[in-house]
Design a protein around this nucleic acid. Structure first.
Lengths: 220, 220
DNA sequence: TGGAAAATGGACCGGCAAGTCCAGACTGAG
DNA sequence: CTCAGTCTGGACTTGCCGGTCCATTTTCCA
């Protein structure tokens, strides 16, 4: 619902979120700000961006309208962006420690299970995907958040592949980065499809096929 | 922007789009309806669902408010759903004739190029993905459209794999459906990532790795 | 050709949700 | 203690946008 409305006002004021010291000066303020972001994240997961109003967030977090605008002067978009960053940070954190330790086939399998489990539990709302529709590709911040998340995620996977390679488990001829990119795409697509259809078959197929592809190169 | 607003009114009236003979009785009516859907699709692609109002569509299609509600009595959601169906139909059609003729490696390559080209051209708005956020998983129709699209798409790919198999180009031991699901997930994810980051690397990696995976089983 | 059904134009309504504002309560450094 | 800066409450404004309504024109077919 923000949409055009929000776009208008955003253009009108043109203030952007400043990353450095965006936190409030006092401890109480910082706590409130954090409460808002976390509460907003909850609400957004439950209802989806399109159906969430500032009042929903306000009541969930036990804050007042003025607090929302005190901590996020640029309004809803700025808050949404903060939530997006919050969620993006969770994505990789939730995959640890496995994602950082992809050195044996067993680890890969555990990571695979973790990813499936995590997204099956998440249900049918992608906090990051939806954020996009609201803020739009036009936003400088939004794209950066996702791009960085993808970069790190892919880097973790690629590192895992290189570790396998170093351990002699896969062929050195394998292009680790490209394979990691493909696997990441498979995960993304699997999740997307699961969101839409409620079926995790594709996610599992993507992960299993991707890992199998790796395993197969061991022979080569 | 419809969102809560639309949800409210949708609940209030509760009418649904009736598929059979949803077309207007007269030729002129049918033409107008089609013009609306096509025009709406254009606008939605350009601006994204979140930023598109009925007035945008109205002015683009040269129609009046009453026409919109005449052809889509349930309002914006019904129109959005019609556009979704329209776009969904395009997705597979745009991949023909290659998608239906995946019987040689060359065909697969041509199809791969077509998919990459199609989505690179499409730019950064996924008409179907966004439709979801607006109408939501709760909608009976929306999920059905995507589920059916995925089913058909996957079926086409799987059939291609079986053809390769019949031609002795890949191992009969290969699970065609699972492999097709994985490849489809890769495409979806590649497109998603491209939408967000503007980079088609992942899409290409997913397609190439998937096809390479197929090729490799030829040996086994 | 007449009249019923369909199609169209466009003024109007109502409510909702983002954003504003100011008064008052807290906090913390000097 | 005190006072400047921060934080909080909540009433209020604004204008957008989905949806309604009815008058008018066009189409169709008997």
């Amino acid at each position: 619902m923000a949409d055009a409305r929000t776009a208008r006002s955003r253009a009108a004021k043109g203030r952007a979120a400043k990353d450095p010291a965006a936190q409030a000066p006092t401890a109480k303020g910082r706590a409130t700000r954090a409460r808002i972001v976390e509460g907003a994240a909850e609400v957004l997961r439950e209802q989806g961006v399109a159906f969430t109003t500032l009042d929903d967030i306000r009541s969930r977090t036990g804050t007042s309208k003025s607090q929302l605008f005190h901590y996020f002067p640029a309004g809803k978009d700025e808050l949404l962006l903060a939530v997006a960053q919050f969620e993006a940070d969770r994505v990789l954190a939730d995959q640890q420690p496995h994602l950082g330790q992809l050195d044996t086939w067993e680890c890969w399998q555990q990571w695979r299970d973790l990813v499936v489990e995590r997204y099956e539990r998440q249900g049918d709302h992608c906090p990051l995907g939806s954020l996009f529709l609201q803020v739009g590709r036009s936003s400088p911040g939004a794209r950066a958040i996702v791009t960085e998340l993808m970069r790190q995620w892919q880097e973790h996977i690629a590192r895992g592949i290189r570790t396998l390679c170093a351990n002699g488990l896969v062929s050195p001829a394998l292009d680790a980065d490209r394979t990691a990119a493909a696997l990441l795409a498979g995960i993304q697509g699997g999740v997307t499809i699961m969101m839409s259809t409620g079926d995790s078959t594709h996610l599992k197929a993507a992960l299993d096929t991707g890992i199998e592809h790796l395993r197969r190169t061991a022979v080569a």
